[in-house]
Design a protein around this nucleic acid. Structure first.
Length: 601
RNA sequence: GGGCGUGUAGCCUAGUCUGGAUAGGGCACCGGGUUCCUAACCCGGCGGUCGGGGGUUCAAAUCCCCCCACGCCCGCCA
């Protein structure tokens, strides 16, 4: 199951609306006159873009024919015969039980180019402001470098934020930093003494490089002993007790000296990795804040008085999970330990209350392994009498090349930085063969953008609820359905416009001059963009944007291949206008995907 | 055992919510294309029991039921 983000406002500048809106009542009237009245809204729901060899818009008439006892084929013929003129419609034909409408290509070209000129970079974006939204994503514990298994969260979250912004929502992105859980406590525990005093099992297990290299990045440095510590604690209860003591000290706001420093340094390094692929955060919310400001104790107080609260023999506070049908074997949700300290879900509750106080819409990007946590959170919100709910966007993890999850402990993790380094290296080789004379920093600039585009697109092209196995050769692909493919189309358009010396870039056009099949196909693809934005925002299916990006780039490449522009005759200006519109739309698409645009590559 | 998710050509994938015409792409493979705007491209070919079975329907990849396979989750971890 996947839980989708809610509705988005309709976007502006949709050329198809200018066709469909007036066509619908006409069609309804025709059906009525033919003796096949339809339910209100039926035509609007069924009539949609449905491209065929000779048509753009189609509707199947089986249903109204059946309801009225007519033969579908004859109904289609009756309705098609003598169909009155309608905006943008050039042809109406009945094919079997289908009614097909062909759009006037010149009209659509004029309309679409005008929309792009009017909208500019905001073509396809919402014209009105929607409610403020908070998108929480990534939120990985600051206990070591980010690996690729988690990166889907960051890229989907970042892209969703971009898509929602385009559809009119002022968006705040948040990274929820768990600095008070057991994992953070483990890091603090081991680093609270010099490595020379570490247990041999931990010190000896760190392979290769020095663990005390002061020049090492903080996430690698502080995270290095983590897997060994985790294993060590399982067989050393006295050490586990020490870690528990740290957890308790965090709970009351008395963190050990270096605790925050380590967490901050580690987080900074992780965020720096994400910045390489254009993922940025508006706010970092520290879990400890909710302990310090007293909101967690308040949550516990409310839960203690809740209808299904039970007190365990050792003093732990629980809520009866059976009431909510949660698949908990214990059928209890523990919200406070026997020693009175809070748990992740309790603190998350406080966090969500704080989000509800600020944002009309609250969206959480979560790995599907957190589904039960999401359900638990909802159950506890109900228990507290809180009516509001976050919207969850769930995704499956990327698995390791060997199959199975990526795990630092098992050594199956592929780190984000390693992936990016490889991608940049490969891209550099490609760029160098094309631009042997360019200076190194220029080659690096292009290679970095290409690598970023490849990696982001590789993640975004697949629906989030699909489990995908990470494979280097796929992630580093620069051809076919890839980020660089889209970047390349943008480069071609940019280069063309540069050579055309358009100055302000405003080229007079006449839609009637854009009649080549490649031109018409490209125009139809551009015209679809506003609907793609609206759909992606409504459904939280950001992969629809990636799919569209390929369609648009492909349509442009075919046009580029088949239709001369600079050497064209009287159509030159119109074609340049189409190139400019393509570039604007491609730029907008790249922006929403977070794939960097390039002027050459 | 229960919950959730996934299953579409050799490999990857869109479409499934909201049933509709010949199931779209990409990789790989085979064959073409550059005196011309960047060949990270374009054109053609090859390749499909939409996991299996039943059902509903004029019509099923799509909806319903059963089954199979794989992944994740079911902690006083996060």
């Amino acid at each position: 199951m996947s839980i989708k983000a809610g509705p988005a406002l309709p976007v502006s500048g949709d050329p198809w609306r200018a066709v469909l809106d007036p066509l619908i009542p006409v069609l309804e009237q025709r059906l009525h006159d033919a003796g096949a009245a339809t339910d209100p809204g039926w035509v609007r729901g069924e009539l949609d873009l449905n491209e065929g060899p000779e048509w753009d818009v189609a509707i199947a008439l089986h249903r109204p024919a059946k309801n009225s006892g007519l033969a579908p084929e004859s109904l289609a013929r009756t309705v098609a015969t003598g169909f009155p003129p309608s905006t943008g419609i050039a042809r109406v034909q009945a094919v079997g039980a289908y009614l097909n409408f062909g759009v006037d290509g010149a009209w659509l070209a004029d309309r679409t180019l005008q929309e792009v000129v009017d909208g500019g970079d905001r073509f396809g974006h919402a014209a009105v402001q929607a409610e403020a939204a908070c998108v929480e994503h990534t939120s990985a514990n600051p206990t070591g470098p980010l690996h690729v298994g988690r990166i889907r969260n960051s890229i989907i979250g970042d892209t969703l934020a971009r898509v929602l912004r385009a559809s009119g929502h002022p968006v705040t992105t948040q990274y929820y930093v768990d600095d008070v859980g057991r994992q953070a406590a483990m890091i603090t525990w081991i680093w609270s003494k010099p490595p020379s005093e570490w247990p041999e099992e931990i010190r000896g297990s760190i392979p290769g490089a020095r663990w005390d290299d002061p020049n090492e990045r903080a996430d690698l440095h502080f995270g290095k002993p983590y897997p060994a510590v985790s294993a060590y604690l399982k067989s050393h209860p006295e050490a586990a007790t020490e870690v528990a003591a740290i957890t308790e000290s965090l709970e009351v706001g008395r963190a050990p000296a270096r605790h925050r420093e380590i967490a901050t340094a580690t987080l900074d390094a992780m965020v720096a990795s994400l910045a390489r692929i254009g993922v940025r955060f508006d706010e970092f919310v520290w879990e400890s804040d909710f302990l310090v400001d007293g909101s967690v104790p308040k949550v516990l107080e409310r839960l203690g008085q809740a209808a299904h609260a039970t007190h365990e023999p050792n003093g732990a506070l629980a809520i009866d999970a059976a009431t909510y049908g949660l698949p908990k074997e214990s059928s209890k949700i523990i919200v406070a330990r026997g020693n009175g300290t809070s748990l992740y879900v309790t603190r998350d509750l406080a966090y969500h209350l704080s989000k509800f106080a600020r944002f009309p819409r609250v969206i959480d990007v979560l790995g599907q392994d957190h589904l039960l946590h999401a359900r638990t959170l909802e159950a506890l919100l109900t228990e507290m009498g809180e009516p509001r709910r976050p919207e969850f966007v769930l995704y499956q993890y990327l698995t390791a090349p060997s199959g199975g999850g990526m795990s630092t402990r098992k050594g199956t993790a592929v780190y984000l930085d390693a992936l990016l380094d490889d991608a940049v290296g490969r891209a550099r080789t490609e760029v160098r063969t094309r631009w042997p004379e360019s200076p190194d920093d220029e080659v690096d600039r292009i290679a970095t953008a290409v690598a970023t585009g490849a990696v982001r697109y590789h993640i975004l092209r697949v629906a989030p609820d699909k489990t995908v196995a990470f494979r280097w050769e796929d992630a580093l692909s620069f051809e076919g359905r890839s980020g660089p493919f889209v970047q390349y189309a943008y480069v071609r358009a940019t280069s063309l416009l540069k050579k055309a010396e358009g100055g302000g870039g405003a080229f007079p056009y006449r839609g009637a001059e854009l009649a080549q099949p490649e031109e018409q196909a490209l125009i139809r693809t551009i015209a679809r963009w506003p609907r793609v934005v609206a759909y992606a925002a409504r459904s939280a299916h950001v992969h629809a944007v990636a799919g569209y990006a390929h369609d648009l780039a492909e349509a442009f490449n075919r046009f580029y291949q088949g239709v001369p522009v600079l050497k064209a005759g009287s159509e030159r200006s119109s074609r340049l206008a189409l190139v400019a519109a393509s570039r604007t739309t491609l730029g907008s698409v790249l922006d929403l995907l977070g794939v960097p645009p390039l002027d050459r590559m």
